[in-house]
């Protein structure tokens, strides 16, 4: 069988500039999340912290981990673990948050 081994060079090479921009955004996100933590935003403190963390993670996944140029299958595999984690947390929280409903609880 003939191996037509293509060099992997045809995989997209991100420019240094892009990496530096993403890097800047990640540092900015860190500064924002620290700053926001000191302001009382009510429930939005938790939501904002979560949104910033997810944004940072998404930037890392898309650029540093090259998922921006990956096929759909890889994207599914990126998401699936987090989806299942949400399932685990939702199912358990359903129990934790409703324990006092009928017989009274803590």
């Amino acid at each position: 069988m003939e191996h037509h081994a293509e060099p992997q060079g045809h995989h997209h090479v991100e420019s240094v500039r892009t990496y530096l921009l993403v890097f800047g955004a990640l540092l900015l996100g860190t500064a924002l999340t620290v700053g926001a933590a000191y302001i009382d935003l009510g429930v939005f403190n938790d939501i904002l912290a979560l949104v910033i963390a997810i944004t940072k993670a998404t930037l890392i996944v898309l650029f540093f981990m090259h998922v921006r140029h990956s096929d759909r299958l890889t994207k599914v595999m990126v998401i699936i673990g987090w989806l299942w984690l949400i399932m685990l947390i939702l199912g358990t929280m359903d129990d934790i948050l409703t324990r006092g409903w009928i017989f009274g609880g803590r």
């Binding site: 860190t30 999340t33 620290v34 933590a37 403190n45 938790d46 963390a53 940072k56 993670a57 890392i60």
Partner: peptide
């Protein structure tokens, strides 16, 4: 990235 706000920043205000 997730651990940092959960463990260091929760309820800082």
């Amino acid at each position: 990235v997730f651990l940092f706000p959960l463990l260091y920043l929760y309820g800082r205000h």
